[in-house]
């Protein structure tokens, strides 16, 4: 196995498994109501037959702008855990990109940076 593969495996395991476990754990906290939420599960259920635009208009932000508001709100916390799962590729590619640049493999380094840029673009909501 190559070193590049080992690095990718490490990040996929950390972020993927961590995101998955966190999603389940935080969702459990969310549905049990242990942490108050701006959007309760029953609120979501009343809106899930409408489009995402209607949902967002009713419930407000998809994400909280502040970390403190995120950790004190079950809904935002649950979304944040899913977001970690969805972000697995970013640190993996960033780590690989740095390694490839140091190794003077500029073609692959540039590709990793370009994909990371696309992911950052998506995360930023562009």
């Amino acid at each position: 196995m190559e070193d590049d593969d080992k690095l990718a495996i490490k990040w996929f395991r950390w972020m993927g498994f961590g995101g998955l476990v966190l999603s389940l754990l935080v969702f459990t906290i969310y549905v049990t109501g242990l942490i108050p939420s701006t959007v309760s599960p029953s609120d979501s259920a009343e809106l899930w037959s409408g489009s995402s635009k209607e949902y967002l208009a009713e419930t407000g932000l998809a994400f909280s702008p502040g970390w403190f508001r995120t950790i004190t709100n079950g809904y935002f916390l649950s979304m944040a855990a899913l977001a970690i799962l969805a972000s697995t590729a970013l640190p993996t590619l960033a780590a690989l990109g740095i390694r490839w640049f140091f190794r003077r493999d500029f073609l692959y380094g540039s590709m990793a940076v370009m994909i990371s840029a696309v992911l950052i673009f998506a995360i930023a909501g562009r």
């Binding site: 549905v31 419930t59 998506a122």
Partner: peptide, 28 residues
């Protein structure tokens, strides 16, 4: 898929098209 799905998932997350009560039971 592990790389491409990430970009598209974020678009859906940002636009309110992911609801935890649907997404988490589905993934689990």
């Amino acid at each position: 898929i592990a790389i491409n799905g990430s970009a598209a998932s974020w678009v859906y997350l940002n636009q309110g098209a992911v609801i935890p009560v649907i997404a988490v039971p589905s993934v689990a």
